[in-house]
Design a binder for these strands. Structure first.
Lengths: 194, 194
DNA sequence: CGGTCTCTTGACGGAGTTCAAAGCTAGTGG
DNA sequence: CCACTAGCTTTGAACTCCGTCAAGAGACCG
């Protein structure tokens, strides 16, 4: 199913596009609906698609050889999600993306998006800005991992992503912070007594 | 001082540019020389410049309130360096960049680079590719921090950046890995006995 | 209301830190 | 050419945060 013009305008809300362009761009996206526990991308998939979240919640995680899951990213309303390393490099996915809450997504292939870049260079700049933001947030996270103890990282997470916290389980947050559920539980207890 | 055409070709070695373009592009760069312990960017600076490393070695680090340094990035031969979060967002630097080994750099301002993007769109794609690579490597590092113990992270670092290891002190590597120099020393000892 | 998923709690262990001191190494000047 | 110093690395002992394992308490859903 194709997205509506209003949805395309929402996706590119910082860019002003003529109606004909919106129409054309929309024709390159497909709208899909997924339910809880669906898996969007699995490790080893070839990744040629990225997704825009209209509603719902998903997470990207790495499944380590020892069976532990490490959450790289959550995505809700108005976020983009994919295994970007695989998407950019044309390599195979090392991440898994699963649905946490039933969601509606817009998907587009790299081939189609690259074509749109040529037709509307403003889109290339739009995605570069997104990439710059993501880069900055990754950098912030690396510094937090290096410089802050678990409690501080938890507080920073809650402060930075108050919207996401409502959608995900504590053990997801723990796997994002790099601690166990037990440790997170103790941290929450300690914070409650303050 | 301006870079030579050969140096500009080296910078954009994956792009083929006509001689006139090389000339013009070169006029937007300046070549600078720095010695050990020089500081290129200090926390709180307004960052409007990025740097290409011709020779030498630098590091970007965050100086935490408790006085500890956390290394985000090293840069040698053929790397770009800046406080990119500040550079992209037009905000103030939170990082410090210091010279580890005397170096020769090419610098260019964001304003000039943006103008070059318009004149040579191929440059925009060139830098987007660089950004995608950096993004992927940050992601890899986040996963390593979440999933691997210090010894494994050290081995991964040595494997991924064998060239950098020759230029930097062990305490720099420790601050990159997120451990103390003492811990790194013990890890190295353990690895030597194998 | 029974079962499964999630969160909590406790006891113990281990990886890495802290603090203190000693050993190296490389550069510098007499 | 040696001696000295400053910077870097190593080593040891005590400690701390967090992980592991095991069990129990809630919470949610059919």
């Amino acid at each position: 199913m194709q997205p509506s013009p209003a949805e395309i305008k929402q996706v590119f809300n910082t860019v002003s596009l003529p109606a004909t362009a919106v129409e054309h761009i929309g024709s390159k996206f497909a709208k899909i609906e997924l339910v809880k526990d669906d898996v969007l991308i699995t490790a080893n998939d070839i990744v040629t698609t990225q997704y825009y979240v209209l509603t719902g919640c998903l997470r990207t995680f790495y499944l380590a050889p020892n069976g532990k899951e490490h959450t790289l990213q959550f995505a809700i309303n108005d976020w983009w999600i994919s295994d970007y390393t695989a998407y950019f490099e044309g390599s195979r996915a090392i991440m898994t993306i699963e649905v946490i809450e039933a969601c509606t997504l817009l998907k587009i292939t790299k081939a189609n998006l690259d074509r749109l870049y040529e037709e509307f260079p403003v889109l290339e700049a739009f995605f570069r800005k997104k990439l710059e933001k993501a880069f900055a947030s990754f950098q912030k996270r690396i510094l937090a991992n290096l410089a802050l103890p678990a409690k501080e990282r938890y507080l920073q997470f809650m402060h930075t992503y108050p919207n996401i916290e409502q959608h995900v389980k504590n053990y997801h947050i723990a796997s994002y912070l790099g601690i166990t559920t037990e440790s997170l539980s103790r941290i929450r207890k300690e914070l409650a007594n303050t």
